[in-house]
Amino acid sequence: MSRLIDTGLEQLASMLSHMGELAYKTVSFSIISCIEGTDSHEQVQNLSETLVSMADEVEDKAFELISRFQPVASDLRIIKSYMKIAYDFARYGRYALDISQIYERLGGINKCEDWIKEAIREMGEKTLSMVGVSVKSLKSHDAKLAKTLAETEKEVDTMYSRYLDRLVENAPSTNRCAILTVLVTRYLERIADHATYIGESLVYIATGERIVLR
């Protein structure tokens, strides 16, 4: 027998999965145009705003379910986690926007050294893959897949700190290039963090355990 709350939970899940797709699109727009040195500011801005308003909707819906059904146990964990994940998705959008705004202010990375471009591309692709995994594991409530995010996040972290070290040792030809890439890698690292937060939430839904993947 299906329960009254189930309809609400399904709605919430579909809102969130839609939001995940959009978040992935936003981040990929931003990262790819960053790697290619093109401007994506306008599109990313629109998408990011949509994500913020969708996060609000998810929160509204979650509050409605709480006040109507006083959920407990797995229902409660799902609702609580969905609210958190919606926030994480909104943060994806926000950092994607930050990255695309750098182009406005400081230009693209085309004029930077090749090793720099290569490092950004590598880290960007890795981060994007994490966003993809986070969205996919949400859709399938796959805690096992979500747990793999921990490993990837470590790799992104290492890339970030190694890049900073290299930048200090081999100063690039322009300050602009240094500043621009420091900001980009910083935002990528933050996006990776949020991907692991989503992973933690998914593990919490499945097991009730509060774990730290980082």
Binding site: M1, R3, I5, A73, S74, L76, G208
Partner: peptide, 17 residues
């Protein structure tokens, strides 16, 4: 018990299944 019941039966009972 209400946030994370250990028994499947408890879970089913308190979530109204």
């Amino acid at each position: 018990v209400f946030e994370n019941p250990q028994s499947e039966l408890t879970e089913k009972y308190i979530t109204g299944e």
